[in-house]
Amino acid sequence: MAPRLVVRVGPEDFDPAAELAPLEALPGGAVASFTGLVRDDGGLEALHLEHYPAMTERQIGEIVARAAARWPLLGVTVIHRHGTLPVGARIVFVGTASSHRTAALEACAFLIDWLKVSAPFWKRTLRRDGSGTWVEAAAEDDDRAARWSGE
């Protein structure tokens, strides 16, 4: 049976509990999830996330398809927000459901690692003193994503 796939990109907030419920309703018995939030690194007021809509859709679709081909998944939910998000706001959600806990956990980690390096989003910091800079990509994120290819 094809897994239940949900991908949503938009400015709206989401409720992780409400997103988990349909994954838990699947017959697998194992659900894993990751929620990423705007971290207060001292002086940060908000992050502004810009994206490339046509490519975002394609890239997330491809990452989800790769996860579904690699692990026996019953459900995948990926939500990514854009726009201006204050400290503490939710940015991203990944949820996976499977009959096997390792499949659910690994697929969830794979999805967030690959989202970070292949979904066309860019973060700009907005600081309380009015300044702001574009966030630099971290080489360790590339390494984490590449690790999934080496196995």
Binding site: Y52, V92, K116, S118, P120, W122, K123, W134, A137, D141
Partner: peptide, 10 residues
């Protein structure tokens, strides 16, 4: 053609 810095989503 799209031109941009390395992505920083997630």
């Amino acid at each position: 053609l799209a031109l941009f810095p390395p992505v920083t989503g997630g």
